[in-house]
Structure formats: structure tokens, C-alpha cells
Nucleic acid binder design. Structure first.
Lengths: 74, 74
DNA sequence: ATAAATTATACCATAATGGGTATAATTTCG
DNA sequence: CGAAATTATACCCATTATGGTATAATTTAT
């Protein structure tokens, strides 16, 4: 699993925490419904600014994070 | 300044830490030279997977980070 | 100051994102 | 178990990101 699930999972989790449906989140964030769906479905080639439009609702934004090496691959 | 300088600055800093030119970084990361340039120039609409191709060289990847509220807007 | 190296800007072509939407599949719940 | 809500898949299309490259501008170094 080359990671990439980060944003995907984050969207789902935060969205449900706020009890929003995909259409509701899309509307609130000002992005298309298709975008929300594709990201939650695991797409990794979406645009950074679009992701940030959504993360902003959660009080987050995309940034470089240190990749934690798993004990298994040392 | 709605942020957005994060990746831009990160690229520049890390690249210089490794003493790489833009063409060298582009080649190592497997992305186009234009991509490196546009990001370092402040573009915010680039693709997440492309950014990650570069961040990977530095041991980083894009992820949701909490937006720290500045004292000025409290 | 001049030459060399690095970075910035501009143009073209291609491929793919994102939006919209209709429909199917799945989940939720009464 | 069936109806309603939610989510997943598929298609069309306009916009745009990306790559390549040539050239200009800027920076670095001698």
C-alpha cells in the first residue's frame, strides 16, 4: 500500500463526523460531487487546490508530512 | 496570503539542501522540469500525485495538516 | 565586468481532471 | 422485507495541468 489513502480516509472520516452526505459536502466546499466521490474512492491524481477547498471546511490543508518508516521495512 | 506557500517553499528548501538544480530534481523525481518550476513559482493547482513524486525524494508526502490559527485572527 | 550556470517566461500538443447528470448498486431504517 | 437515502459507476465535454523546448532574465562565480 503505497499510502495515498490519507486524503481518502480523511474525507470520509471528517465528513461523517459532521454528518454530511457527499452532495452536502460538495456543495459546502464548492466542488463538484464527482470530485468528492473520486477522492473518497481512492483517486490520487486530483488537484491540490481542490482538495484544500474541502480540507478547509475541516480546518485542515495539505502539507508535506514526514513519512514514518514502518518497523517492517527497516 | 492565504497560505499555499507551503509546498512551494518546501521544494526550494529541500532541493537546495540536496544541492540540486531544477533540471536535476525533475529528472530524479521523474516529473517534468516545467512542473518543478511552476510549483516553486507558487502554482497551487498542480496534481497531488505529482507533488508526491517529488516529496518522496525528501522522505515526505502530502497529508492533511491542522491549520494553525494565527494569534491575529482570534 | 564578463562568462557560465541557473531560473523564469512563453508556446504547442496531449492527456486527464472536474463538472454535470443519469443510472445502478449499496446501505440505512422503519 | 421493502422503501428511501446514500453512494458508486458510466458518459459527454470544456478546461487545464503537464511535458517538451526555445528564449529571456537572473544569479553565481571567476
Amino acid at each position: 500500500m503505497e499510502s495515498g489513502k490519507k486524503v481518502q480516509e480523511f474525507f470520509k472520516e471528517k465528513r461523517k463526523q459532521l454528518n454530511l452526505t457527499q452532495p452536502e459536502l460538495a456543495k459546502k466546499a464548492g466542488v463538484g460531487l464527482r470530485f468528492i466521490r473520486e477522492v473518497e474512492q481512492g483517486k490520487t491524481s486530483m488537484r491540490v487546490d481542490k482538495v484544500n477547498q474541502v480540507l478547509k471546511l475541516f480546518g485542515y490543508e495539505l502539507g508535506p508530512v514526514l513519512v514514518k518508516r514502518d518497523k517492517t521495512d527497516l
